[in-house]
Amino acid sequence: MLGHLGFSYVGLIYLLMLWIPNTIWSKNKPIDYNTTQENKILLLFERVGQVCCTCSILIFSDYNITPFSAWSWWIIASFFLMILYEISWIRYFIHEHTEENFYRSFCGIPVPGASLPVMAFLLLGIYGKVIWLTTSAIIIGIGHIGIHIQHLKTINYR
């Protein structure tokens, strides 16, 4: 439940799946993007969750692939969500770079840029039976999804 210390190559793959599109996004932000109204408490949850997720996904080997079992469906579902996350980024990059396009739902999933990776990390934590990643995913979820929902509400009130 606490996790076995050791490097997780699966964790590294997940972080690359997060960082690469986010790095590209930092150079292609929505033309109307505004962070001045972000809730400071949600931002604190987001930052703490980011640090905790990054550490716990790399330092526990419990996420690495094991022989297939019924428990493997957790990592399959988690990876599927990360693939959807990548596809949602592609959708953003090939369309107009606006906040409305950035925050619109994808496959019925609201604020996919926040909710998909958070759900993927949560399921990966369940797969690895690591309470640290599961808890970290909840913490980042409160902040990151909360901030994205705030931005979406601002767009809807314009």
Rank of each mutant, 00 (worst) to 15 (best):
H148L: 02
P117E: 01
L44I: 11
C53G: 02
I155K: 05
N34I: 12
M119Q: 06
R47I: 14
E46D: 09
I65S: 08
G3D: 11
Q50C: 13
G3V: 14
L43R: 08
V130F: 00
L15M: 13
K129C: 05
Y103N: 08
L84S: 03
W132C: 05
I145A: 02
P110M: 09
Y127I: 03
G3H: 09
L2I: 15
H97L: 10
W71T: 07
K129W: 01
I94S: 05
K153P: 00
W73D: 01
L84K: 03
K29L: 15
P112F: 07
T134L: 12
L18M: 14
I20W: 03
I149G: 01
F68E: 06
V10N: 08
E99D: 08
H4C: 14
N156E: 12
C52I: 11
F79R: 02
E99V: 08
G11C: 11
H144I: 00
S105F: 05
P112T: 03
Y14N: 10
G146Q: 00
L84E: 07
W74K: 03
S115A: 12
S61A: 13
H144Q: 09
I76F: 09
M1Y: 14
I41S: 04
L122M: 07
S72V: 04
T35S: 12
Y127L: 01
Q37R: 14
W74I: 04
E86H: 10
W89F: 14
I138G: 01
F106C: 05
S72A: 11
K29D: 04
G125F: 00
T54W: 11
S69C: 09
V111M: 07
S72H: 04
P117L: 00
T35P: 03
L15I: 13
W71P: 01
K29Y: 11
G113D: 00
Y103F: 12
K40P: 13
A77R: 03
H97F: 04
I76L: 15
L43F: 11
I41N: 02
P67Q: 12
E100K: 10
F121T: 03
F45P: 05
K40A: 10
I138R: 00
S78M: 10
A70Y: 14
A70Q: 12
F79V: 13
P117Q: 01
G125A: 03
G3Y: 10
I139E: 02
I87C: 02
Y63K: 11
A77L: 15
L133C: 04
N28F: 11
I75N: 05
I13V: 13
I155E: 05
S72R: 06
W25V: 10
G128Y: 01
C52S: 15
M119T: 06
C107L: 13
S105E: 06
P30C: 06
L122T: 02
E99R: 11
I147S: 04
K153Q: 09
R91V: 08
E96N: 14
V130Y: 00
I13L: 15
M17D: 04
K27W: 13
G141C: 04
G141K: 00
C107M: 12
D62A: 10
V130T: 09
L152N: 07
